[in-house]
């Protein structure tokens, strides 16, 4: 007798847990021959709001970790992903990738995580400045995490789009809620398992599956979201997002997929605030001590 395979239940990822959508809704994902691959969670506004609560709760801890520590955790994600390469390749292939493309996509994703792992304790030096003010003050500016970032990741790619949208955001100490590709959602849930086993604190990355057409307005209008990163091309959604974003002066950044897959410290900078600090200096002038 042949053994019956165990199929995976694809759930969403909120606050380090894998709940089903509170709405109980799903959409069927089918393969090339119309066979059912999974019943995928059709996340609701309430799921999104729960995820934001988790992300906000995790923000203080994540943003105050040292860059070095965040770097090690990002590197750990890369290690875990590398170790599960075959699983991701298989998953990409049942979602329509060729073996070569699937293998490349996973390798690129791992490499991108390693790239950003290295940035965690370096972008600060790149984007900081000591400002030579004309009064007797010491004055410097440093980048600081913006807060909670909502992300609508690329529709076209199941894994690389997701990883390239998350990595620069969490490298910079932000926490996020990400909407995965609707048509290729499988890798996002499996990637959540990778995150879950990589010492990434619960709530730092939260992953939802579902429809951008339903959720984008909530991603844009939620009052406890500081920035929104949009990685799709739908002009109507972009306009709608920008309109809703004004409710709390949310920062909105739009990207095409190719913008982000190559990685750049300037993508980290996007979701950073610049903070300037002043302090008086008791005396400014030529020093009395000479040679």
């Amino acid at each position: 007798m042949t053994r019956l395979d165990i199929l995976k239940t694809y759930k969403i990822y909120i606050g380090g847990q894998f709940p089903r959508t509170e709405s109980g809704r799903y959409y069927p994902l089918t393969g090339r021959n119309k066979e059912l691959l999974a019943n995928v969670c059709l996340s609701s506004r309430k799921d999104f709001r729960n995820a934001i609560v988790a992300a906000r709760t995790a923000f203080a801890g994540w943003s105050s970790r040292s860059g070095f520590n965040r770097g090690q955790i990002l590197y750990r994600i890369a290690e875990m992903l590398e170790g599960r390469k075959e699983q991701f390749i298989a998953e990409l292939m049942i979602q329509g990738s060729t073996p070569k493309a699937a293998s490349e996509e996973v390798s690129c994703s791992v490499d991108l995580l390693v790239y950003y792992a290295g940035w965690c304790d370096k972008y600060q030096a790149l984007f900081s400045s000591v400002n030579p003010v004309a009064s007797s003050h010491f004055n410097f500016s440093v980048p600081e995490a913006m807060g909670v970032v909502s992300i609508i990741s690329s529709e076209e790619s199941s894994l690389l789009g997701l990883v390239s949208s998350i990595a620069p955001v969490i490298t910079g100490g932000n926490t996020c809620v990400v909407l995965a590709s609707e048509s290729k959602p499988l890798c996002s849930v499996t990637f959540a398992e990778v995150l879950n086993s990589s010492d990434v604190p619960g709530g730092v990355v939260n992953i939802l599956t579902g429809k951008s057409s339903e959720l984008h307005q909530h991603f844009a209008s939620h009052m406890d979201v500081n920035a929104l990163n949009y990685h799709r091309e739908d002009k109507k959604e972009i306009t709608n997002i920008r309109e809703q974003a004004c409710l709390n002066v949310k920062r909105v950044f739009t990207h095409s997929a190719s913008d982000v897959t190559s990685g750049s410290p300037y993508l980290i900078l996007e979701n950073q605030e610049i903070k300037t600090t002043w302090h008086p200096v008791e005396q400014i002038g030529p020093g009395k001590a000479g040679y």
């Binding site: 003010v133 009064s135 500081n226 709390n248 903070k275 300037t276 600090t277 302090h279 008086p280």
Partner: peptide, 22 residues
């Protein structure tokens, strides 16, 4: 965006100024 320690309302062309949040 700007924090003054033991001083207040100081401005300079070399010093970035601007806000967080709203």
């Amino acid at each position: 965006g700007v924090v003054w320690a033991n001083t207040y309302n100081k401005f300079d062309p070399t010093s970035p100024f601007g806000g967080y949040k709203e």
